[in-house]
Amino acid sequence: MFGLLARRLAAALPTLAGVIVVTFLMTRALPGDPAAYFAGPAATREAVEEIRRQLGLDQPLWVQFGDYLADLARGDLGLSITTGQPVLADIAQRLPASAELTLIGLLIAAGFGVPMGVAAALRPNSWVDHLCRVIATAGVSLPTFFTGLLLVYVFYYQLGWAPAPLGRLDAFSSPPPQVTGFYLIDSLLAGDIETFTGAAAQLALPALTLGIFALAPIARMTRGSMLSVLSSDFIRAARAAGLSGNTIVIRYALRNALLPVVTTLGMVLSFLLGANVLVEKVFAWPGIGSYAIEALIASDYAPVQGFVMAMAILYVALNLVIDLAYQAIDPRVRIEA
């Protein structure tokens, strides 16, 4: 187990090196002059040049890259020109917000998608199957910002069930003492039920938006996988042994059918990380998606690089978790590893 972890982490190193090089080059190649932006519209040419020198942007590219690497090695991702904060601190503060949103979104998607897929597979071409297909197709067809706005319109503006879409907590609550950075967990750890319900209420609509988006791939994958498992020899043998319907569907079929679904989750997560950016905008969610967009618009290199790095690390970590989950389900993989 430990050996596998070490090997997988080692295998991720070239990926991360690639990400470092590409993000560095890409942000330099983008149009826009950060020195000019930072200096402001009223600055003189000399002032802009001065700032350019301060930022090290007058150096040759390879020198800039060397500086960048040296900073990285020290855990310094640079300063954000827009917020004036170290990028690492910004990301550390905002990443939990995005992670909480994405994971809850995924949980909603899996929580509805897997049962939907199972129900559809048990009665293929029945009305249940068609209903699941319609819901899944609609979910994936609507752009997330539109679903988000629709939910806000219905549940906040019309029905008044949801709080205003203004971030992780309403203005009158203070965040729980930080342990994990996930408000839902931290508030429970602090025993603060009021903050917990407040955070959950804020989280409901954006997480639902992401969940609806990710429902389709999970439901479709579960359905297809269940159908093929249900027609396999060992299911027929289990029926020949007279096992009960529940045992056959859940313990025999579903556990086997989940293997490809777990693999799909990795892909779905990467979709979600992308979709996050727009959803954070709609719900004024203080996550790293909106942070990166603002930085990109301002030609603020350091946060964009930091963002891409954080995403790459997150992605590598998630895939590792998925590999471990796969092993927990499938004994055949355990042996090979």
Binding site: S232, D233, F234, R236, A237, A238, R239, A240, A241, G242, L243, T247, R251, Y252, R255, N256, I329, D330, P331, R332
Partner: peptide, 30 residues
């Protein structure tokens, strides 16, 4: 009735067992 009064064994023995469940458990299930 199946498994208690009337049972069956199959042509492809390995494919007829649940691949990710311990064989002892599969017997115990019945």
């Amino acid at each position: 009735l199946r498994g208690r009064e009337l049972s069956m064994i199959f042509q492809n023995p390995r494919a007829s067992l649940n691949p990710i469940r311990r064989v002892g458990q599969q017997i115990a299930d019945v």
